[in-house]
Computed example of a mutant assay.
Amino acid sequence: MSRQRRVSSFDDEGVRSLLTSYTYEEVEEIANNILKRVKCRPSLGIICGSGLGKLANTVTNQEIIKYNEIPGFPVSTVPGHEGKLVFGQMCGKSVVLMQGRAHCYEGYSPQKITLPVRTMKLMGVTTLIVTNAAGGINENFKVGDVMIIKDHLNLAGFAGVNPLVGLNDDRFGPRFPAMSHAYDVELRRIAKATATDMGFDSFFREGVYSMMVGPSFETVTECRYLKLIGVDATGMSTVPEVIVARHCNMKVLGLSLITNECIMEYDATNFANHEEVLQTGEMRSKDLQAFVSKMVEHLSL
């Protein structure tokens, strides 16, 4: 009997919870179920963060499947996350775009929120572009800036919030994957060159992203701490998805839209809120659509 079959045979919930939430066969079944319903065979995946769902407007020949129509898929409950897989063509490339994502703060495990990434891998995706809305820690960043992520800080991982916790299946990836090059150097180079070619240098940045589980926004002291340790922007997503993508040997490009300035003064009267996140996403939507389209045009998949 194979190890994978033995894993699937455990009945004890306490033991089962220690294992990967989804076996290779379970993810394969989900992927095959989706592929039977669409003609597209994607090699590129794009995850849209809060307020960035209009990136789907750049996809032609669309085939759409709602998350709640996919057995086992996490369904987002957050405004600005529509909850759809959009398949189609972008600049001659076959893509699948996630119009919204799920988060740990909605009550999902890290393994659950990263199920779509594993599913994309088994559907044939080799490159992942992941976007998010983030608060600016770097005081040189302005609302509306776009940060190319060069690295991340998995603070939640310090407390064990990591989607790779549990029994490893080598068919997904190695037990101990390296994260020193989580964000592909060549993709970052192409992104920076594309931003320059498009005249977007004035609002494009590069920096380090951190994930806080949320849903509460950061305290002043937390923001000051993040600044002290070298973080440029912070949000509530992305890191688990990137970890799983790299575990699956997918190339990753990360983009953060700076939707608010993090509060650094104890007596400040302003505060972070989700409404400004959505408003900034709307404001920068067309620029991001144009940038991602141009970026995809330069990719070799």
Rank of each mutant, 00 (worst) to 15 (best):
Asp12Ile: 10
Val15Ile: 15
Glu139Thr: 15
Gln62Pro: 08
Asp267Arg: 11
Ser216Tyr: 00
Val130Asp: 05
Ile129His: 02
Ala56Val: 14
Val296Ala: 11
His103Ser: 05
Thr194Lys: 08
Thr259Ile: 08
Gly53Glu: 05
Leu167Pro: 00
Thr23Phe: 05
Asp169Leu: 12
Cys91Arg: 15
Leu55Ser: 08
His81Tyr: 07
Met211Ala: 03
Gly173Met: 06
Val86Ser: 08
Lys84Val: 01
Gly72Glu: 01
Ala245Asp: 05
Phe10Val: 10
Ile229Cys: 09
Val86Gln: 07
Val78Pro: 03
Asp169Phe: 14
Gly281Asp: 11
Val130Gly: 07
Tyr22Ser: 02
Phe172Ser: 11
Val38Tyr: 06
Arg5Gln: 13
Ser210Ala: 15
Gly214Phe: 04
Tyr22Pro: 00
Thr234Met: 04
Val161Ile: 15
Thr23Trp: 03
Pro79His: 10
Phe204Leu: 11
Ser109Gly: 11
Asp267Met: 10
Leu226Trp: 09
Ile30Ser: 05
Asn61Thr: 03
Val244Met: 15
Thr58Tyr: 01
Met295Arg: 03
Leu253Asp: 11
Glu276Ser: 06
Tyr183Gly: 14
Lys93Ala: 01
Arg284Pro: 06
Ala182Asn: 00
Thr114Gly: 11
Cys91Phe: 03
Gly45Gln: 04
Gly199Asn: 06
Ser285Lys: 10
Met250Cys: 05
Ile46Gly: 04
Val161His: 02
Ile149Trp: 12
Thr77Met: 04
Ile148Gln: 09
Asn270Gln: 14
Lys142Asp: 15
Asp169Met: 12
Arg175Leu: 12
Asn61Gly: 08
Val165Gln: 14
Lys251Asp: 14
Leu128Tyr: 08
Thr269Pro: 00
Glu139Trp: 03
Gln4Ser: 13
Val7Phe: 11
Val125Phe: 08
Asp12Cys: 13
Lys286Ile: 10
Leu153His: 02
Leu85Ser: 08
Phe87Leu: 02
Thr114Cys: 14
Gly214Ala: 07
Asp232Ala: 11
Met212His: 10
Val296Asn: 09
Val239Ser: 12
Thr194Phe: 09
Ile30Asn: 06
His103Asn: 02
Val78Ile: 13
Gln111Asn: 13
Arg224Asp: 08
Gly51Phe: 08
Asn140Cys: 11
His181Lys: 13
Met98Cys: 10
Lys36Asn: 14
Tyr209Asn: 09
Gly124Tyr: 07
Arg41Asn: 09
Gly88Thr: 05
